[in-house]
Simulated assay, not measured.
Amino acid sequence: MANAALQRKNMVESQIRPSDVTDRRITAAMTAVPRERFLPERLVDLAYSDESLTIAPGREVLPPRVLAKLIQLAEIDGSDTVLVISEVGYAAALVGQLAAKVVALLPDDDAARFATAAYSAVDANNVLAVAGPAVSGWSAGAPYDVVLVEGGVELVPDGLKTQIRESGRLVAIAMNDGIGRAVELHKRGEAFARRESFQAAALPLPGFVEAKPAFVF
Rank of each mutant, 00 (worst) to 15 (best):
P206Q: 03
D177F: 09
P204N: 03
N10A: 11
R113K: 14
E150P: 06
V95S: 00
F38R: 05
A112G: 10
V88R: 13
G168E: 04
A68L: 02
K69M: 12
K69P: 04
A211H: 14
D77A: 14
T27G: 09
E41W: 04
L148Y: 07
Q97M: 14
G78N: 11
P157Q: 07
D20E: 09
L6C: 01
G78I: 07
R37K: 13
E36G: 01
R42I: 02
A4E: 15
S49D: 15
S14V: 12
D77K: 15
K69N: 12
A201W: 11
S136Q: 14
G152N: 07
K69D: 11
Q15N: 04
F114D: 15
S14M: 14
L73Q: 03
A211I: 12
L67V: 06
M11E: 11
T27E: 10
K69E: 13
A74Q: 09
A214C: 08
F198S: 00
A74Y: 11
L106E: 10
G141D: 00
R25E: 11
V171F: 05
L43M: 08
I85G: 01
N125C: 12
V103W: 13
S197F: 07
G189C: 06
L46F: 14
P107E: 11
R194E: 07
R65C: 05
Y48E: 02
S139A: 13
I85D: 01
R25L: 10
V95A: 01
K101V: 09
I55A: 03
G189M: 03
V135K: 13
A4H: 06
L46T: 08
E13F: 09
M175W: 00
A111M: 13
S19L: 08
V95F: 00
R42S: 09
A174F: 01
D45G: 09
D177I: 08
S197I: 03
L170E: 02
D108A: 06
V183S: 00
P157L: 10
K187Q: 03
G132W: 07
V82Q: 02
E13V: 05
E36D: 10
D110N: 15
I26V: 05
P143G: 02
L67E: 15
A47H: 04
M175E: 03
E60W: 02
G58Y: 06
L43V: 04
A131H: 10
G207K: 06
G151P: 07
L98T: 01
G58F: 03
P40V: 09
A142W: 01
D108H: 07
A4V: 15
G151S: 11
R42M: 07
P64Y: 07
E154C: 08
I173P: 02
S19Y: 13
A112Y: 08
I76S: 01
G141N: 03
P18S: 00
